[in-house]
């Protein structure tokens, strides 16, 4: 049979190459070589914030990104990527996204955006790294923190100044003092960017865990042209790929050498204040569309069921 090549684009860089190789091999083997993954790392072909567009047009067959990248185009993007206060454990996040109601909303939203929703992956720690120790939110009011929009909005609520910097400028930004800290990922990500050379103080915010979720989308035309067997192979392999990344992040965050970071935790009342302030962002997201209102409703119901609201 003819080989079918799938253009698969992730937002990760070289750090997950080993996992990617395993994924490519798994697909090739399970399909007897009929299905081949042509794998592209972050930024190689399409900028991550244009993934949704590229996969709907057929430039790419499958993308692996997160909702924040396409939140300007797909209403639910920001919510499903992870709002501050949204969930506190992987199990909780999984249960939330696997509920029929939420799954239906996501499927509908991504179908409307001209894509096929294939499934989700779960990130890991997403906390604050600073040059100087942080003992409370009050400490942050005089520092400049790099954060992206939703977290930035919550920090803004407390009068904490935020700036946006692309990832490759974080190291210099922090070592020279353009920023005093960043909310970008967990210990393993910070270590990879060598940020521990610029700032060692890692503060758990207890705001959101996992700090982000990942999404796999396919181009409808190329997806529908696949045989059911090939679809099943891809779905299985993608689920494993997502799980491997999550495990790699978890192990990486555990395994960061002792002394690399000095860990601290934000006082419980500050974490609570953050979560409460995040309600403003939730309501703002709910106001963007009817679908968003429904998804936020589900998120609120879940938070209440967990006893957090």
């Amino acid at each position: 049979a003819d080989t079918v090549r799938i253009r698969f684009h992730t937002f990760y860089g070289t750090e997950i190459d080993a996992i990617a190789d395993k994924f490519k091999d798994a697909v090739k083997e399970a399909s007897n070589g009929e299905l081949r993954i042509q794998y592209f790392r972050g930024g190689e072909l399409v900028a991550s914030d244009q993934f949704a567009d590229a996969v709907s047009k057929g430039t790419l067959d499958i993308v692996h990104g997160h909702g924040g990248y396409w939140s300007g185009q797909v209403d639910i993007g920001n919510i499903e990527a992870g709002l501050p206060g949204g969930w506190t454990s992987v199990e909780e996040a999984k249960a939330f996204f696997e509920s029929p109601e939420v799954n239906a909303l996501l499927t509908e939203a991504y179908t409307d955006a001209g894509t096929v929703f294939l499934g989700k992956g779960y990130g890991h720690s997403y906390d604050l790294l600073t040059k100087e120790p942080v003992t409370s939110l009050e400490d942050l009011k005089t520092r400049k923190i790099r954060a992206t929009s939703n977290v930035a909005k919550v920090l803004d609520h407390f009068g904490i100044p935020t700036v946006y910097l692309p990832a490759q400028e974080l190291y210099i930004g922090m070592s020279t003092g353009v920023i005093d800290g960043a909310i970008y990922g967990g210990p393993v990500e910070y270590e990879q960017l060598k940020l521990h050379e610029a700032g060692q103080h890692y503060t758990y915010l207890n705001m959101l865990m996992p700090g982000w979720t990942e999404t796999f989308l396919a181009n409808p035309e190329s997806w529908n042209s696949l045989s059911d067997e090939h679809k099943a192979i891809l779905e299985t392999a993608i689920a494993q790929f997502a799980e491997d990344i999550h495990q790699w992040l978890a192990a990486g965050n555990e395994g960061v050498a002792e002394g690399t970071f000095i860990y601290a935790t934000l006082p419980a009342e500050d974490s609570k204040a953050l979560t409460e302030a995040a309600q403003g962002v939730w309501q703002e997201e709910a106001g963007r569309s009817e679908r968003n209102a429904k998804l936020i409703e589900a998120l609120v119901a879940n938070a209440k069921a967990q006893g957090r609201l």
Binding site: L45, V46, A47, Q50, T59
Partner: peptide, 13 residues
């Protein structure tokens, strides 16, 4: 045609 779309996405980047 999918490849052509890279022209616009490269432009915006």
């Amino acid at each position: 045609p999918g490849g052509l779309d890279l022209l616009v996405s490269s432009t915006f980047s």
